[in-house]
C-alpha cells in the first residue's frame, strides 16, 4: 500500500450551536486507499464528513488535502482542489435530468468533461439510457448510483461517502458496494461512513471506530472484523 497521505483530519473538534459533537477526531486516508468509519448511531460519523468537507466549521483541529491546509475553506474551493462528497439524503437534483445532474458534478471543471462523462457512464451503464429523464423519477438505488456518478464527474482525489447503503434493498446494497470497489480500484481514495459495518469493513482496507465523538479503535479492516470488542458492539456477533 502506498504511504502518501492524501487526506488527513487532525484532532477535529466541531458541533452544532452549543452542542459539541466531535471532541478531537483524527483520520488519515492514503493514496488509492479505501477507509471505513463505523460506529453506533450518534457517534459523529456523518458530522466528521461534513467537517472534513467544510460544511461545518471546525472549532479546532485541521484538515489537510495532499498536504495543503484546507481547514474551513469555502466548499467551492475545496471541490476545486479535488474533494467530492456524497450526502446520505437529498443527493440528486430531482428536477434536473440525469445528464444535467452529472454536468453539475463537473461544474468547477474547465476541461475534459466529455471524456469524464464517458468514463462515468461506463461505470454506471444504467444511467446512459435514461440520461434525458429527470432524476426525481429514479428509484432509491438508481438515485444513489446517480449521486455517486455526480461526485465522480469531478475526478476527485478523495471521495467522501455518507452511508451509501442507507435505506436500500440488500440486493442494491451489494450493487452499490461493488461499484464503490470498482471506483477505488480505479485509483480514487475513498472515506466511507457506514452503519452497515460488516459490509463496509469487508471491502475497505482500513477502518476507524468512532464512539461518543472520539476515536475508539482503528486498524486493518480484516483485524477490526475479527476484533472481539468491535464484533460485540457493532457487528451484532
Amino acid at each position: 500500500m502506498p504511504e502518501n497521505v492524501v487526506l488527513e483530519a487532525r484532532d477535529v473538534v466541531t458541533g452544532y450551536g452549543e452542542v459539541e459533537i466531535l471532541h478531537g477526531v483524527s483520520v488519515t486516508v492514503h493514496e488509492g486507499e479505501m477507509v471505513a468509519v463505523i460506529g453506533p448511531n450518534g457517534a459523529g460519523k456523518s458530522t466528521l464528513l461534513k467537517a472534513v468537507f467544510g460544511l461545518l466549521p471546525l472549532r479546532s483541529g485541521r484538515v489537510f488535502l495532499k498536504g495543503e491546509d484546507v481547514t474551513n475553506q469555502r466548499t467551492d474551493e475545496v471541490v476545486r482542489k479535488g474533494l467530492s462528497y456524497v450526502p446520505q439524503v437529498d443527493n440528486v437534483f430531482p428536477s434536473l435530468t440525469i445528464l444535467e445532474n452529472l454536468e453539475m458534478g463537473a461544474f468547477v471543471r474547465r476541461d475534459g468533461r466529455r471524456d469524464r462523462l464517458d468514463q462515468v457512464f461506463s461505470l454506471f451503464p444504467d444511467l446512459v439510457t435514461r440520461k434525458g429523464e429527470v432524476a426525481g423519477r429514479l428509484s432509491g438505488g438508481q438515485r444513489q448510483m446517480l449521486a455517486l456518478a455526480r461526485a465522480l464527474m469531478l475526478d476527485p482525489q478523495v471521495l467522501l461517502l455518507d452511508e451509501p447503503s442507507a435505506s436500500l434493498s440488500p440486493k442494491m446494497v451489494g450493487l452499490i458496494f461493488d461499484r464503490i470497489r470498482v471506483i477505488n480500484q480505479g485509483g480514487t481514495a475513498i472515506l466511507l461512513v457506514e452503519q452497515n459495518a460488516r459490509e463496509a469493513l469487508s471491502i475497505c482496507h482500513r477502518g476507524y471506530v468512532l464512539a461518543m465523538g472520539a476515536n475508539r479503535l482503528d486498524g486493518e479492516a480484516k483485524g477490526l472484523l475479527e476484533n472481539a470488542e468491535v464484533g460485540r458492539l457493532y457487528l451484532g456477533a
Binding site: 467551492d76 471541490v79 453539475m104 469531478l154
Partner: peptide
C-alpha cells in the same frame, strides 16, 4: 445544499 456541495458558488 447539493449545489454548494457540487462546488457551485
Amino acid at each position: 445544499d447539493l449545489a454548494r456541495i457540487s462546488g457551485i458558488n
